[in-house]
Amino acid sequence: MTQSYQLSHLDQLESEGIFVLRETAAQFERPCILFSGGKDSIVVARLAQKAFWPARPPLTFLHVDTGHNFPETIEFRDRFLGDLGAQLQVALVQDSIDRGRVVEEKGPNASRNGLQTVTLLDALEEGRFDAAVGGARRDEEKARAKERFFSHRDEFGQWDPKNQRPELWNLFNGRKQTGEHFRVFPLSNWTEMDVWQYILREEIPIPALYFAHEREVIEREGVLLAVTEFLTLREEERTERRTVRFRTVGDATCTGAVESAASTLEAVIEEVASARQTERGGRADDRRSEAAMEDRKRQGYF
């Protein structure tokens, strides 16, 4: 096989991701990796481990914590990053609320998802981070299809589609004025399927939430939401026990579950292969409007 000089698609994507991470370390002074404990950020962390081996990744891991977590995610985060020997910094949405930077939403659909943007931008500014690496992929959502590997943000943290730089060959331009920063997306060319396949191939641990388990849920507007202390039930809503799993892991108030019996990675991949809904189809935050993601991105969301 060594004589064919062809790489499989996963090897090509891995090599590209490692290249982008090394380029980030080389072009920026204080880069960080946004780590949520979700599968995409886990893959980014894995690529960072490979890119700088045997040294530790020269990037800080930053978790923007809404406080509305599934407890499994936090346990997983601490264990996973501990094994990596990585530096973790946590930015709490609760702190932004306490300091009056944001106001908590009210009502049964209340979510801290939108508030994260302010916490994130404050954390980047306070930490003087000039690049924030994220696990977003271009296949996730229409507004992301045109995203760059090196995505420029102005001094307000905002994304202007007209101010993005063309990326040719292997050449990325991370030059900026003081106060501006970049978002970097090493997984730009990966699809959801690629991420799962890579996790399988590399035997990367992921939170148990991704596998089928029994849990109390409610069905709201066609989405199954986990019953947690953060969810306000409406009067008519009744909880029920179902066997579910999560396709994305985010804020507990707006991450939808799907009914599933997939309890192994192989079964999850089979399910992803035959799925007829996008993974973000279960996210209440995207359902708010047709251009919800485009709007949040402009404001400086992940």
Partner: peptide, 18 residues
């Protein structure tokens, strides 16, 4: 892709599809 493009019915950039 973007709303600004949809409104004008044009594509203004490179979009990547998989």
């Amino acid at each position: 892709g973007l709303r600004s493009e949809r409104e004008q019915g044009i594509t203004i950039d490179v979009a990547y599809r998989y």
